[in-house]
Structures are given as C-alpha cells and as structure tokens.
Amino acid sequence: MQTDKFITPIAHAFSAGLGSWGVINGMQVVTQFVDKDVEEIRKELLGIADASFLGKFGVKGRHAAQWLQDQGVDIPTQSNSWVADADGNLVLRLGGSEFLIEDAPDGNLCEKLLKADAKRAGVYLVPHVEASLVLSGSAVQELLVEVCSIDLTRAALGTQEVIMTQFAGVSVVLIHQDLEGEARYRVWCDSSYGPYLWEFMAGIASEHSGGPIGVGNYFSL
C-alpha cells in the first residue's frame, strides 16, 4: 500500500545516526534504538515505541456504520469504544459516527476498505496519517499523570473505551489494550505534533529509566 518514500512522522525527533533504521510496511522507521537487552529493560519500566507504519483508514457520516458492516467489518456498538477483530485489526468508534481503523502489523483490512466503493451519501472517507505510539511498563502511570489531566488508570477506563483528550497540549486518541499478557496504551496524534509529543514522552520515560524502543518489542514483524 505504501511506498518506501514514506518516513515516519516522528523522524524529526530522531537525531542523525540514531539506532538502526529499516523499512516496515513501506515506511522508514527506527527498528532498534539501543541494545536488545537494554530495550527489554526499558520496556519493563517505561517503553515508548513508534507504530506509525501501521495502515490506517477513516470513515465518517450518517451511514458510515452501516457501510462498514456491509464490508464485513465488526464495529463497536457504543460511541467512544473500540473492538479488535480476530486478526488483531483495531476498529475505533470516535464519537457516534466516525471510525478509525488500524491494521494489525500483518493485516490488510485498510487496503481492502480503501478499494471498496464508498461513494454513497452519508459515507465520507477521512484520510489518516497520524503518528501512532505504543506505551507500556510499570511506570507508565507516572508518565500519563505528567502529560494528561484526566485519570487514565486501568480502573478508571472501561475495558473497550476510546478516550479523546490532550497530552501536553496536543489532542490525542487513546485506548488501553491487554495484549500478550501485557497492559499497553495506544496513542494517536496529528503527525505534525508527533516529534514534539515523542520527545516530550521519551524524555519522561528516560527519567524513569525507560525510553524509546523498537516496535518489534511489541509486535512480531
């Protein structure tokens, strides 16, 4: 779907010569920041990874829900909630009538939807090029309370809740996901704010002996 001309929207936050770069899903990303063992320790404490290469698809409008169902996509019934299908693709319902879909690392749902006929009244495609991040670790709440003024603990969030709020002044979409026995937060923000938010959160992660890690720590690629 993507060509290798793409570079992660976080790129401006990475100094030259940092880590090792690679191409995932047609996007240039940093695949490893430091030694494997150090990354593993970071992940335990407070890891932050760049998952912006995952395919995304957006649709909104009066009939968007129906249209998605017609394409065979399971959608969350409540506003501001999300579901994952059997392949791990995420379907987020943003408010009542807007949807953001993100592919699993090996998924191609978004490509399929892009090709589908969406020229129907009440169905409008919304291009998505967000920066997409993963956060986890024992100190992740310390980071969240520094960047956000609402309670984002596991207990405060419903299991399938989508939260739209601000991190350090930047609008973000957030979910909490238990995956592979691990509690992770997924965060999306406008790509132009990606480097700022990355620097800000990576800085806090470092204060807690965590830091940036390759996304391979979260997804088998």
Partner: peptide, 17 residues
C-alpha cells in the same frame, strides 16, 4: 482547574475546549 462537560466525551479540563 476549571472543568467542562462535553455531552459526548464527559468532564474534561477547560483547556481541552
């Protein structure tokens, strides 16, 4: 911190509005 309640997203700090 002053709070405002969005009918869809719930109670949030005023800075989000």
């Amino acid at each position: 911190m002053k709070l405002l309640t969005c009918p869809v997203n719930g109670t949030r700090p005023l800075s989000e509005f």
